[in-house]
């Protein structure tokens, strides 16, 4: 039978060498909340597991020149407890918080959620909306790429075999900026998103949107960054007309499938509903109006 090896390297170089040198399938383990399930079901049969959690800097949050840098393997529970991130990026924090149970929060990471490359991943629309970049390391060195360039299809990423994400960099936040994330699920917890929506906005002193990024999950093979939706918001306050247009462009952007979690028709309608609701929360937050969590 195939034997499965395990390594927990303590440096990026060692990790990259292990990944590059593996004859068979090698998988990076951070939280393992997807990987272990896929191994157990037989969908994935790796020969090597490289546990990256002992690499310095891969767990933790720091600020550099006003920008937050989140270690790729930082568990959700650590991100949620970080006051600075909660203030600057409440949408990203609440999106990560929505992944799985409390138990899963003790393990799950942004990198795992992104590299699992599920179109329904909760933190990914928020990362896209945030305009985050990923610092990727590999045999050819480091590269920094926008997160939206990483997932290429369900379960597929643009990372080479010997590459993994070391950390995420969030842009410096201008004044009157905020974000929000909502997903729709049939229950109140424990489900995979039927539709997810993340929006990040910057407003001027009059509440007019000057910058926006809108992202939708579970409505296409990958999480979408919807430029048309951002265009609807930019230059406007969130009046009824803007909300109606946002709903329409969000729906128009959807290319969903019908599966056990939702139908094409339902997902499309809900994308519009969520876009409106998320925009309202993000605008409120950017205007300094405190708004509750998604649940």
């Amino acid at each position: 039978m195939t034997s499965l090896s395990y390594a927990a390297p303590t440096s990026v170089d060692d990790a990259v060498k292990l990944l590059a040198g593996s004859a068979g399938l090698a998988k990076v383990l951070s939280g393992g909340t997807d990987l272990l399930v896929q191994m157990r079901s037989g969908r994935l049969k790796p020969e090597l597991i490289v546990d990256t959690k002992k690499i310095p800097g891969i767990i933790g949050i720091r600020e550099e020149n006003g920008a937050f840098i989140i270690g790729a393997g930082t568990p959700g529970a650590v991100v949620e407890a970080h006051a600075g991130l909660n203030a600057a990026w409440p949408g990203l924090v609440e999106a990560l918080d929505l992944i799985g149970s409390t138990q899963v929060q003790g393990r799950c990471s942004l990198a795992g959620n992104l590299c699992n490359a599920s179109p329904a991943a909760d933190s990914v629309p928020a990362l896209f909306a945030a305009g985050a970049t990923a610092i990727i390391v590999g045999s050819k060195g480091r590269r920094e790429v926008p997160v939206e360039q990483i997932p290429t299809g369900p379960g597929r990423t643009s990372l080479a075999k010997d590459e993994f994400i070391l950390e995420f960099k969030l842009p410096v936040r201008p004044a009157r900026s905020s974000d929000a994330y909502l997903r729709f699920i049939p229950r109140t917890e424990m489900d995979i998103a039927v539709v997810g929506c993340g929006i990040s906005v910057t407003l001027d002193a009059n509440g007019v949107c000057t910058a926006a990024r809108v992202s939708l999950g579970a409505v296409a093979p990958t999480v979408l960054l919807v430029q048309e939706a951002a265009d609807v918001l930019i230059g406007h306050t969130l009046d009824a007309d803007t909300l109606a247009k946002l709903d329409a462009v969000a729906q128009a952007a959807c290319k969903p499938i019908t599966d056990k979690r939702g139908t094409i028709e339902y997902r499309t309608k809900i994308a519009g509903v969520l876009a409106r609701r998320v925009a309202a929360i993000a605008f409120d937050r950017a205007n300094g109006i405190k708004n509750g969590k998604a649940h």
Partner: peptide
């Protein structure tokens, strides 16, 4: 509200797990 068996066209169950066979959780 939420529990059901979902089959594909081959007659295979698509939601054979607690993730997609949705029993009520405490927050419901």
């Amino acid at each position: 509200l939420s529990e059901e068996y979902i089959y594909n066209t081959k007659g295979q169950m698509e939601n054979a797990g607690f993730l997609d066979y949705r029993v009520p959780v405490a927050s419901d």
